[in-house]
């Protein structure tokens, strides 16, 4: 106790320069270790959370409401500068979201259609494999979780994520421009993050554990039902399984083998 993250990193940095860090770094990064310790996590409920996004039903109003609900729930500030922006849920057009589905003659209405993107909570998450401190790991229910108390801001996970789902705090979120964030922090019951940590969507772990739907799904439901559908893939009778069996869906960059758990109805 008594040493905070920044102090620790400074000390560790100096120690590494002095050559003391060498062995520890090798220990941390040995691949077998990371995998072995992941298995030791206690079982929660063995479910697999997933989301289906009904693309034809998405419109700007719904998407903006969803993003606002998410970012207000989790105190994600607006910096107004794409270089330092922090995002958990955001809009992107079809062409950039599904680069592998692109062809020159694709219907205009798809090409420029905007849709919602977030962390895909992959079944095979590359971010978790590279995290040296297990600050990000996969829960037994499939959620790719963040432990902000452990994040040292190395950003390996950001390099590993093929979807750009992770944001780095280049500055203190509480110092985000006041004119863009008049009410920040918007949810006093959820901590902000601090300078130097990575953040992303956690499928609203804090809401799910209380039996509530994720904030974005709740916001969408208020405007229109069945645009965002959240449920358990492991249960053959679940809402998501039924929607998936009746509709043609695609996932982002499936060829990479990450097994995303966000599905898009085309």
């Amino acid at each position: 106790m008594g040493v905070d993250r920044r102090q620790f990193l400074k000390i560790a940095g100096v120690a590494a320069l002095a050559g003391l860090g060498g062995k520890a770094a090798v220990d941390i990064l040995a691949p077998g270790d990371v995998e072995a310790s992941m298995k030791a996590l206690p079982l929660t409920e063995g479910k697999r959370w997933a989301m289906v996004i009904n693309m034809p039903e998405l419109n700007d109003e719904i998407m903006n409401k969803c993003i606002a609900a998410c970012h207000e729930e989790h105190n994600v500030p607006e910096f107004g500068d794409p270089k330092v922006e922090v995002k958990w849920l955001w809009k992107e057009d079809y062409h950039h979201s599904f680069p592998d589905h692109h062809n020159e003659y694709i219907d205009e209405k798809y090409e420029h259609k905007f849709l919602l993107l977030a962390c895909n909570h992959c079944s095979n998450p590359p971010c978790c494999r590279v995290c040296p401190t297990q600050a990000t790991w996969q829960r037994e229910d499939g959620i790719v979780m963040m432990d902000w108390h452990r994040c040292i801001g190395c950003r390996f996970c950001m390099a590993a994520c093929p979807y750009g789902s992770r944001s780095f705090n280049w500055g203190d979120p509480r110092k985000a421009p006041k004119d863009k964030n008049p009410d920040f922090p918007t949810n006093i019951n959820y901590p902000t993050r601090s300078k130097g940590v990575v953040e992303k969507c956690t499928f609203c772990d804090e809401r799910i554990s209380k039996g509530q739907l994720p904030a974005c799904v709740e916001a969408a439901n208020k405007l229109k039902k069945n645009v965002l559908i959240f449920g358990d893939l492991a249960d053959p009778d679940s809402n998501v399984r039924q929607v998936l069996s009746k509709n043609y869906t695609i996932r982002r960059k499936p060829d990479l083998g990450t097994e995303p758990n966000i599905f898009y109805i085309v």
Binding site: M1, L41, T44, D147, H149, S209, K210
Partner: peptide, 18 residues
């Protein structure tokens, strides 16, 4: 109390025991 807080933090975030 810091031990209790540490335990809460650990079990809340990592074990989903809320």
């Amino acid at each position: 109390h810091m031990k209790l807080l540490d335990e809460w933090r650990q079990t809340f975030v990592r074990n989903d025991e809320r």
